[in-house]
Design a binder for these strands. Structure first.
Lengths: 158, 158
DNA sequence: CGTATAAATGTTATGTTATAACATATCAAT
DNA sequence: ATTGATATGTTATAACATAACATTTATACG
């Protein structure tokens, strides 16, 4: 789970994710414009899911964007290319933990610290489950709400 | 999958679900008031997910409710007690296919006929997936979008 | 270079989903 | 009949999201 719940050097964690995305954009010929990059940085500030309007507020503070479509476009760009994920249960967005490969993540939402972790092993799972009944899966959403190990052991986290 | 995608005698399908819920309410001391019952009937009209405002419109046609909180309350009652499910990806609601037992369903959303089917086997799955990483799951959402066997074979369905 | 064209951004307006807060009515038990 | 809990009625607004169109910026190619 590349444990985002546990204490870790977040600055380097975020920096490395950003660098990975920057490389991926060069490789794939995608334009990581200022507003898109800043949106990613905002999501990378923590392992929390942010609503589009939270992101918009921060973009606005930076003078980069001040209307809903601007935030949604940047977020959609990141989601489309797998650099962020949409958390359906929260109507919110979280930076991707391993932005290099296409993947269908399972998301783990801690109700106490509100961090969202991600695991990758969910991909063929849906295929398999559906196959029994002749259902052909295009996209799969797996999201769990519960509590992380840290929050169950201690009282709170950031 | 108790195949809702396949042609079936829907009148008896809906009637039996309704009867099951009525019994469950008696057993559990729940009040299936007119507005709640009608809301369930509306969802049972087809195996499609309906938005809260779609439901509200129909309740309004019947003179039963005409303001958003009324529809949301009825829907929340049904969801809380497992008589309906919320489809997170659609921000919509679907009647439960087997309202007798508590269960965590996996939902199968056909992009062509827009019907939503349900399977029950997802429950311990989340527990298991999370367990590896010390995550304790309270609730699990599994939703797949794709195409059902019928729609892949034919061109359309109701 | 310059111009065509595609991509991204800026803007207005509005659509869609959901809930807080408080008033009133109904039910169920004593 | 009174009480306390549950459900419904109502107002207002919060929160999430996109359609449609104008303008600007990047890039490709003659």
């Amino acid at each position: 789970m590349q444990n985002v719940f546990a204490p870790h050097d977040h600055a380097s964690c975020a920096q490395s994710a950003l660098t990975t995305v920057e490389r991926a954009c060069v490789e794939r010929g995608l334009r990581l414009t200022l507003i898109r990059k800043r949106t990613l940085e905002i999501l990378l500030e923590g392992h929390h899911a942010l609503g589009a309007y939270d992101v918009l507020q921060k973009l606005s503070d930076d003078g980069l964007a001040d209307k809903p479509p601007m935030a949604y476009r940047a977020l959609n760009f990141l989601v489309e290319h797998g650099f962020a994920h949409r958390v359906e249960r929260l109507n919110a967005y979280v930076a991707c933990a391993h932005p290099d490969a296409e993947h269908t993540p399972a998301l783990w939402i801690c109700k106490d610290c509100h961090k969202v972790a991600e695991t990758a092993q969910a991909a063929e799972l849906g295929q398999r489950l559906g196959q029994d009944d002749g259902f052909s899966v295009n996209t799969l959403t797996i999201e769990a709400e519960g509590s992380c190990q840290q929050c169950r052991g201690e009282s709170s986290d950031d």
